[in-house]
Every structure is written in structure tokens, then in C-alpha cells.
Amino acid sequence: MQLDPPVTQRLRPGPSALSREEVLASQRGRLALAALQTVAAAGYQPTTIADITKRAQVSKRTFYELFRSKEECFLAGLEGGVAVAQHHLDEALEPADRLDWRRLVRRSLTVYLELLAAEPDVARALHLEAVAAGGEIAHFRARMNGVFVDRMRGAHRVGVEQGELSGEPAEGMLAFLIGGIDDRIRQQLIASGPEDLPALGPDICAAAIAILRMSGVD
């Protein structure tokens, strides 16, 4: 998973062919990535704006042109991480309509765990430090969980179309499922680190399939 596209690479000294808007976009991307990486390494509370600008090799003056606070910068990093994860999930699941709904669930969750293992900074930032940050980032986490609820709802819809499931999945059940997955990921990160996250796959997938089978059943 590539979180550092060319536009966010450090600009070389001297004249640049980029417009001011492109330069600022590059600096914004570097700062957001630096915030995510620094918070993942040091923790949200201890991280300072100076730490972020030093890692990004961008001035504090430029930081305040682009962000109002550490929270806003970290939030941009989290949003970038989730966007990249979503992109990779979409690529891995194409075309989803050819997959059995159970395989769709397994593939979705397995790919996500593998992505987190490959990008430990993203794993720690999303599932550990974002919890500690609170504030607007807590609202972001709720939106992020909603995105994954929608993915599970989509898998259930495929099962209905394939004639194996019926009804509509209860919102509370799906929220319970995604919250449980989030908690298991967090506990695994604390216990042994991101490299072991794929080992959660079989249990998480089995639980997701069982809950989706129960959904819509009176």
C-alpha cells in the first residue's frame, strides 16, 4: 500500500516547475503523512507540531497556512490512509458480483488485515492513536466504521441476490460486528504488533459470516 505518492515527495531546492497550488498540495500531503507516521511512533498526545514539520521538512509557517491545528493535520493523514485502504479493497474485490457472498466477506476482511500489517503506521494511527485523540477524530472514527458497515451490508445484499440470505441486516448488528473487529485489531496491536494481524482473519471472518446469516432472521 503506497501512502506517499509522487506529489508528496520532498521538493528539491531551486526553481520548481510546479505552480504554487501544486507546491502547497505537495506540502499538505507531506505534512499529513508525517503526522500519521509521527503519531504512530510517539503517540498522539506527545506529538507536537514541531515534530510533524521536522519529519515533513516543511516550515511551521507553511504548516499554519495549511492546517489550524495538530488535530486537523492528523485527521488529514487518517483520511488519506483510509482512502488508500478503500482503493486497495475496491481493486482486490473487482468484480465483486462474481464472488460468493462468503468469499466476498472473507476477501474484504483478509485484504484489510493484510493492508494493516503492511502499513503498521496506518494500523497504529487508525486503531490505537485515533482512539486516544478524541475530539473531531472520534467523529472521524465513527464515519470510518460506517464505511465498513456499508461494506458488510453490501456483502449481505450479494447474498440476498444469490438467494442464500434474506431480509435486511440490522444496523445495530452490523455496528456490533465492526466495533468488535476494531476492538480485536486494537488488542492484537497492543499484544504483538501489526505483523500478526492477518492471524485474526479466520476468527473475524467466521464471526462476520455468522452475524450476516443471522441478520434479517426473525
Rank of each mutant, 00 (worst) to 15 (best):
V7N: 11
D100M: 04
R61H: 12
G29W: 01
L99C: 08
L113W: 02
R98M: 09
R20S: 07
L200W: 05
E164P: 00
R30Q: 03
D218T: 13
A17P: 06
V105K: 06
L200H: 07
R186A: 11
Y112I: 08
I209R: 10
D150G: 06
E21Y: 02
A56S: 02
L18D: 10
G154N: 08
G80Q: 13
L109H: 08
A133C: 04
H88P: 01
L66K: 06
V7L: 09
Y112N: 11
A199Q: 13
D182Y: 10
P6F: 02
G163V: 11
I190C: 05
H156W: 05
L75S: 10
A35S: 09
V105N: 07
A34P: 00
A25K: 04
V160R: 14
A25N: 06
R102L: 02
L177D: 09
F148E: 11
R28Q: 10
H87L: 09
V111A: 13
V58A: 03
S59P: 01
E22W: 00
M214W: 06
D183M: 12
S16C: 05
L116V: 08
L75Q: 13
G43V: 09
L66E: 05
A41T: 12
R12C: 04
M1A: 10
A34S: 05
R213P: 00
M214D: 12
S19L: 03
E129Q: 14
A25S: 06
T8P: 01
V105L: 04
L31E: 05
L200D: 09
S59R: 05
G43P: 00
F67D: 08
R184C: 08
L212P: 02
S215A: 14
Q45M: 11
I178G: 03
K60A: 11
P46A: 06
Q187T: 13
E22M: 00
G77A: 05
P120A: 04
M144T: 14
I185F: 02
R143C: 00
R213T: 14
L36F: 01
V82M: 10
I185S: 03
D218H: 09
L109A: 06
P15M: 12
